[in-house]
Structure formats: C-alpha cells, structure tokens
Design a protein around this nucleic acid. Structure first.
Lengths: 204, 204
DNA sequence: GTCTATAATTCGATAGAC
DNA sequence: GTCTATCGAATTATAGAC
C-alpha cells in the first residue's frame, strides 16, 4: 500500500550518485570537484554534504558499488559448475569486452585508485577459490593442457582483455587510430582472445 | 680547466628533479603537493618555483624525460635490422620486464596521465613505422605465422608484459600475494611470455 | 530537503630580506 | 641562491534562512 513507490533513480540522492559515478570514473578523484558533481546532478553544493557528509565518503561509496558489481559478474562465471574450462574462458573474455565497450574508463579508474582508498576488491581471492581454478589444476594434472601457473593464466586472460582499454589514450590520439578503428579492433579481439588463450594452453 | 666540475646530481635543481620524479611517479600529479616535493628534496618551497617556474612546468619536464627514455629503449629494439622476429619479441619482453622490475609504478603513471597533459608519446607510430612491423607483415604473407593484425600482436606483447604491474595493487594486498611472490611471478613471466607469443603465432 | 552565503582550509605562487 | 612570510585563488564544508 505504498503511496508513491518513489522510482529509485529520481531521488535526489540517486541523482548525485549517478553524477558522481560518471565524473569520478572518467576523471578520477582529485580532478573532480564537488561543485562539478553538484552542477552535473542539478542540485546545490550543500546538498551533497547533506546526503553524503563529505567528498571522500561519497567517493568510497561509489568505489564500493563499482567493485561489487564488477566482482559479481566475474564470480558468476568462474563458479558456474556447468561449464568446462574452454567455455569459461570464452565467457570471461566476452564478459570483459562487453563491459569495457560500454564502460571504457572503468579499468584505469579502478586500478588507479586501488592503491589509495581502501578498496576491498579481492580479485585474486575470487579466482583462487573458484571452480575455475580447480578446473585448471585438474586439466594440468591430467595433462590436457600445458603446465601453467593458474595465476599466470588469470593474468593472461585479464591482461589481454583489458589492457587495450587502459592504454587506449596512447594508441588513440592525433597520430594514433580513430575511435571507430579502436572499437573495431576490440570487437576483433573479443573473437580472437579465446583462441589465443587456447594456443597458450595447447601442448606442443 | 673547470674549477669544480659540479657532480650533476648534487645540484639543487637536480635534487628537486629527483624528488619530483619519485613522488609524481608514485602518486600522480594531483596527489603530490609542491610542498611535498620541497620537503622530499630538503629545500624550500620557493626554490621550486625559482628553478622550475611552476608545478605544471616541473611535471611536464619530468614526464618528457621519462617518455623519451622509455621510447628510446623500445625504438632501439624494434628497429634493429639484425634480429629476426622471434628474437625481437624476446628482447622486447625482457626489456619491459627488466624496466618494470626496477620501476613498477611507471606504467600506471604514464597511462593515467596520457589523457590529460599533452603527452607527446607516440607509441603506436613507433611500432607502425618500425622494422618489426615489416617483419610481421612479411611473415604473415609468407605463411610463416598465423594471420594476425600487427596492432593486435603489439597489444598482446605489451599487455602480457606490463598488465600485472598496472594491476598489482589488486593482487598484491592483504589477501593477495606478497611482494616476494609477485617478484617471483614476474620473473617466471619474463621467461614464459615469449613462448606464449610464439604459441599465439604458431599455425595450427 | 533545499537553498544562499560564508567560514575554514589547502595550495600554488611571489615579494622581499639576506 | 636560498630563505621566511604572506598573498590570492580554489575548494571543501557548514551555518542558517526558507
């Protein structure tokens, strides 16, 4: 019998959150001023502090949300007991590339801020305890794939997928490739990476 | 007949430069205050402006030095006409890993600042016009390696080499691996990556 | 809850003595 | 060349009216 189920994203608090996330993700913590966030969300500067107490606290809240969302996506894939190793790799790569295409600034943002603001992200642990990890170890033991440190396999999958997005400002500039060419290249990588990982794991 | 050949790195200007480079590389432009640099170099705040005019100019000078040093290393390898494709890849990987081991914060620093401060870094172009690029295209044409977009090969080599350093704060924390384990892992990768690249290029 | 006005602080830069 | 002292702008945070 809720009188007026307030649509969650038209709340003032939510508008500030959305604006902050957009700006922080694109420009980083220091470069974004509280005034920018206020302007972007169409509210007054004082309201930001009313809702979030401080810039620092607002940032941490957003960081935490991003991390949680990100890890949930990964976790679902690596812990699915129904898929085999090869499929998991393919799904991981596709998940990353799709996420990155619509959120190209995410990785540089996350990695830049991971050292400072107490990010609770636990990437390595999620992998270490996953069903994926067990499958890798088994496959190695059974001699189905070339011996590899599972941590290195993880680094390879993630690195091949997200590195171009982290470095894109170096390739995509005046003398570099265009926006369109970059997108096309990433679409190509989305198809190629699983095969490259397979090649790495193939026994000679 | 120079009276007292002043050892270049005991100059006040040089001390400021060294301090600035250390701090900027580790924490980024915004996070470092001119007062921090003054304290680190053991001089007064006013001297910084006396020698470098402004924080911005000091930063750009350091950025430029780093870039130049970095690109020279790469350029020498990719343009050496005496080495074959396989050797070039091995040397590139070794160059990267050695550089990163002694300078682990460099990549995140460079990539974080590439979008803002007019960095003249021209990474893609250096590769595009290199002897290395020609060798790749020839090898593909002659059917010696599997077809691959040279840009993708470059992204793979660089990504596999430097990504772990960019992401290390996510793997190397309370619940992650230790500093020593990380170093050992990187030493392992230095040996493995050339083989992985070969596998990617090998025809089925 | 939302605003205006302003306090409090931080920070880059400079003036001016030595 | 080097320092102390301080200015002025930018920025976060808050007081207080509505």
């Amino acid at each position: 019998m809720a009188a007026k189920a307030k649509s969650k994203d038209s709340t003032t608090e939510e508008r500030i959150r959305v604006a902050a996330r957009k700006l922080f993700t694109r420009h980083g913590y220091d470069a974004v001023k509280t005034r920018d966030i206020a302007a972007e969300s169409g509210i007054n500067l004082a309201l930001l502090n009313y809702y979030f107490k401080s810039k620092e606290k607002l940032f941490e809240k957003i960081m935490q949300e991003n991390m949680k969302e990100f890890m949930q996506g990964i976790s679902g894939i690596v812990n699915d007991e129904q898929t085999n190793l090869e499929s998991k790799i393919k799904r991981l790569v596709e998940y990353y590339l799709d996420m990155l295409m619509s959120n190209p600034d995410m990785p540089l943002f996350v990695l830049s801020h991971a050292k400072k603001k107490g990010s609770k992200l636990n990437f390595r642990e999620t992998f270490a305890q996953s069903h994926f990890m067990k499958q890798i170890q088994e496959a190695v033991k059974e001699g189905k794939i070339a011996p590899i440190n599972p941590l290195n396999l993880m680094l390879n999958i993630v690195g091949l997928s997200i590195f171009p997005f982290i470095g894109r400002h170096i390739f995509q500039n005046e003398k570099g490739i265009t926006e369109d060419a970059f997108i096309a290249l990433m679409a190509e990588r989305k198809k190629m990476i699983p095969g490259w990982i397979d090649a790495i794991l193939r026994k000679k």
